[in-house]
Design a protein around this nucleic acid. Structure first.
Lengths: 210, 210
DNA sequence: AGTTTTGTACCGACCGGTTGGTACAGATGA
DNA sequence: TCATCTGTACCAACCGGTCGGTACAAAACT
């Protein structure tokens, strides 16, 4: 696990230390939440000493912000963008691709962990205003991505003129988050499959009503 | 605040003490979550001593179960049943009434707290199996109520035969939970209004397609 | 009747493990 | 040598839970 320096010494890179902390913390926070994730566990799992941790991070809260950074960029770059990047792609197909991608992610995780961003939103929104505003802006960006796609779909006539992209985007994000939560509490991926099925069906209604 | 015994002694009723603890704990857990709610805060807010607390409850976990009991019965008796109790009522009207009721609850709370059951589900599903199964059964009961209503609606021809009550019920619960979460993180009731609007619109599609 | 016992309700000091955070000396590498 | 990086020992606050003891009313006993 430990990265070795060129001359084979014990010490790490500094950069890789920070990354080892981040990786361990992200795993633990995903399952245990922010407050319930204990620094010592992060340290044990990453093999980093305490003094070393506080060399790289000012406090647990700063670690939280770093995790949030990582989560946000990872979500945008590795989940959102791959689906919506192509400006020539059919917007509705992109949305369906995105829904499937999220569903498969939950299946692979065997319904454990849920949505990292959704979990943090539920845990911290009313407790930590700083985290809340950052989380709110991620969800806003997410909705915006869908809104843009839906506007494109409406302009190109893929969905009817009666569709309201903003409302529909909000609805899709909410439904996905809720579906992930239900599947996490019931530990049954079928719940989410049904929800995603209904979402696609709803989208299809808008296609038929064009 | 303190109930007096008939002869004016200092001591409380025992029953009312337990209820004072439960009330304070429910408020605090709703906002801070289970793990992040500290026993001393519950004690301070309810004016109960520590020894007394442990006279009424075996542990914090037992308090958690009692809160869950209270939450579940309160949700079923005060939110779910009032909408669906009347077997002669029109099922779709009942569902719409329910959606509005949940929306108004969030508005009254100014988007603070979110859904008590949803919060606990997010916080505890992967950490405490005992709580998880209980929460899962509440959500199952909730979905079941909607499923029954939707079956009735289909039999009576209010919605088309193509509707799949189980999937639709899952979807409605998920969408509501997600909408509550989004409104809580964005502190903007408009998000939830739009989501509820879309849910009603979806329901209306099923009506039109009968 | 009056006295002793018993059970319920309650208090707050205290205990010990946990947790976020600090101090500091030593190692490493440019 | 100097800045960077790391491990170890330590601290104070926190928090769930325990303990010894009090208050008092209803039984039980005499």
């Amino acid at each position: 696990m430990k990265a070795q320096t060129t001359n084979g010494s014990r010490t790490r890179d500094g950069r890789s230390t920070r990354e080892a902390i981040l990786a361990a913390a992200q795993r633990l926070i995903h399952v245990h939440g922010y407050n319930h994730t204990v620094l010592d566990d992060v340290l044990r799992e990453s093999g980093v000493g305490k003094g070393n941790f506080y060399y790289h991070f000012k406090s647990k809260e700063e670690l939280g912000h770093a995790i949030l950074d990582q989560l946000v960029t990872s979500f945008i770059e590795r989940t959102l963008e791959p689906c919506f990047a192509d400006p020539a792609g059919r917007p509705l197909a992109q949305i369906r691709c995105f829904l499937d991608r999220v569903l498969e992610a939950q299946r692979e995780r065997h319904c454990v962990g849920g949505c990292p961003l959704g979990n943090l939103a539920a845990e911290l929104s009313d407790v930590h205003e700083g985290f809340r505003t950052r989380l709110a802006s991620v969800f806003a960006a997410w909705r915006e991505r869908l809104t843009v796609a839906l506007h494109r779909a409406r302009r190109s006539g893929d969905i009817g003129a009666a569709a309201r992209p903003e409302a529909l985007a909000d609805f899709l994000v909410a439904s996905l988050e809720g579906a992930i939560l239900l599947t996490k509490v019931s530990k049954d991926i079928a719940v989410m499959e049904q929800c995603v099925g209904e979402m696609k069906h709803y989208l299809a209604q808008y296609e038929a009503g064009r």
